[in-house]
Structure formats: C-alpha cells, structure tokens
Design a protein around this nucleic acid. Structure first.
Lengths: 130, 130
DNA sequence: ATAGCCACTTTCCTCTAGGTACCTACTATA
DNA sequence: TATAGTAGGTACCTAGAGGAAAGTGGCTAT
C-alpha cells in the first residue's frame, strides 16, 4: 500500500465493484440502519421499546430485522436479561463507535450543503428549457 | 446553532427523522450513486459509454435514471454536444466534489474495518449457542 | 378475570428499484 | 444493404424491502 489517497488506488480492474465503498454502503447506509445507529449513539444503551418510540415510523418487524443484522455485523451489542418481563438492551459496539466521526462528518455536510441540493432541484425543475 | 457536536444536537423532537443524516443517505448512498460518483471522481469527465463500461454490471436504463437524479440534485453536470454522433459528457460538480473527503473517509474506514465485520459475521454464524 | 407489558414473530400485502429486451435517429464504414 | 456506434427511451416483469395487523407467552396489576 502506498501513501496515495484512496481515490487514486482504484483501477478499472474490479469487475463489479468499481467502487471500494459499496460494501460499506450496503452495511451501514440502508434506510433504517442510520437512524438506529444514530439513536443508539445519541441516547446510549436502550431497550427495544425505547428505540421503537424514538424512531416513530419504524415497525417492530423491521426494527427486529435491522437490529439482528447490525448485531451480526458487529456494529451493536445485544444483551438479554432473562427477567420477568424480559428485558433486552442494545448498545453500540466499539466497531460501531468507530463510525462516529464519519457520521459527524456526514451531518456536517448535510447542514452546509442540503440547501444547495434543494436549490439545484428547484432550478432543474423550473427551467425545462433544454 | 451552538458549537456542540452534531451528535448531541438532535432531540427526540423530529417525528420521522430521528436522524439528521437520513436525507443525505437518500441522496448520496443508493445502490448505484456511489459507484457513479466514485468513477466520475476517479477518472474525470466521461461519456455515457465510458461509465457504462467501467461500472460493468449497470444497465443503460438505470445508468440514465441515476445520472438524471444526480444532475437534478446538482451533484454532477451534464454537457450535451449536438454533434454527429451526439456526444454527452458527465462530470462532478463543485457540490459533488465537496463529498470527496467524505468518500475518502469512508474508503479508509472500509479498508481498516471491513475485515472486522466479516469476522463478526463469522462469529455470529458459527456460535448459535444462545 | 381481564387487561396490559415486553420483545418479539408471523402472515399477508404493497411498492418500487432494478433487470430484460427491444426501439429511436443519425451516420460512417464495409 | 447491413452492421456498428452513440445516447438514450419504453414496456414489461421480478425480487426484495418494507408496511399493517394480529398473535405469543409469561407474568403482574386491577
């Protein structure tokens, strides 16, 4: 590995993956994974119902599915307490925590540039003069 | 806006968007947008067929759809040359270029942590001891 | 005795991104 | 005449993600 920027390291070689970040996108940036990770990071260790209540529009089925996937990928840790009633707690793992600066970076980009995207969309839609 | 980290600025207020980066994810991280942006950044201004050849598995229909969306969002610029045969060139816009450090960051995370994800998956799959 | 809580699970349904395949108009080349 | 190249467009179809709603089991509170 040389010290050049990641941008320049990719040749045309890879057949399907012309893009080294596609795998990360699959793992981290599906529709519900970012809200879950974000909520977990923002509010710390939480139970199922807490997540359900904070991410108001998610259904329990999908929440379970995403949590299982995130657990399998090692991004969160699930702790089961065999009490009555059962108690389960979810928290971000060390690996998941390593995404924090990335998310912060993303949030920063959002605050400064989301307006430009809206503007671009408006411009595109209001001048159909080809 | 105070100077606190983006992480801490989100309360439970937002109904659907418990997560400020969801909009960015919708715009930038769909299945084909990252390979397209990556390829455009890595190889500079390109024509339709060049993109098609580099992102080997994409179909022309989808490539058109994604390019249109990226153009509308202001992330790329499309230049039409009314020649014979017609020539069209795509390149990253300034707004799109502002994503570069983010992508580099992502690529870096991928190289250092993707192996851990694989390991976590393997661990999860090979110890069904609940 | 009924209702409720928790953490899901199950079934069924919808919706859309993406895939397949073929088409357009024009020209250069063989 | 036929083929290839260019930048797509169009119609049809499939698969998978996600939504809606109800159920489960064990206990507790009223």
């Amino acid at each position: 590995m040389d010290g050049s920027a990641p941008w320049t390291t990719t040749a045309t070689t890879d057949p399907e993956l012309a893009c080294p970040i596609s795998p990360v996108v699959d793992i981290v940036f599906s529709r519900w994974t970012t809200p879950i990770l974000w909520t977990l990071h923002a509010h710390g260790r939480q139970r199922f119902v807490e997540l359900e209540r904070r991410i108001t529009t998610i259904t329990p089925k999908v929440l379970t599915q995403r949590l299982r996937q995130l657990e399998r990928d090692g991004l969160i840790v699930r702790t089961y307490h065999p009490e009555i009633p059962p108690r389960v707690e979810y928290e971000i793992s060390e690996l998941g925590r390593s995404l924090a600066p990335l998310f912060a970076h993303l949030a920063e980009w959002a605050t400064t540039n989301l307006g430009r995207v809206d503007q671009a969309r408006h411009d595109y839609d209001t001048k159909p003069a080809r």
